[in-house]
């Protein structure tokens, strides 16, 4: 098996995650899908690291994880706040930004 298959898997997972973002209305699930996309990227990074024979890809994946952690903290805080005021976690309900 060629390690390039990991990349195909990463692409597949990324696309599934993106589709989830587009299809789901629950903000928390949307968030999970974003996490899925980030993880797919990480997998690609790790695979590239292996293919190129250096560790820079793994460093990138590491930073991605840190940033994802920060992003999750803030994102969930925002979701909680929106839920408090609107009693809904649906992204479609927050649709005031229209003409």
């Amino acid at each position: 098996m060629n390690p390039i298959n990991y990349l195909y898997l990463a692409a597949l997972l990324f696309t599934i995650g993106a589709a989830g973002v587009l299809l789901r209305r629950n903000a928390i699930v949307v968030f999970m899908c974003i996490e899925l996309m980030l993880n797919a990227c990480n997998l690609a990074f790790v695979s590239f690291s292996r293919m190129h024979g250096n560790l820079d890809g793994q460093i990138m994946a590491f930073f991605t994880m840190v940033v994802a952690a920060a992003e999750v903290v803030i994102g969930l805080a925002i979701i909680v706040m929106i839920f408090r005021s609107r009693h809904s976690a649906s992204v479609d309900d927050a649709s005031l930004m229209k003409l």
């Binding site: 973002v21 587009l22 299809l23 209305r25 992204v91 479609d92 927050a94 649709s95 005031l96 930004m97 229209k98 003409l99």
Partner: peptide
Amino acid sequence: QNGYARSYA
């Protein structure tokens, strides 16, 4: 511009 974040996405 329908206000739905998912449409923009």
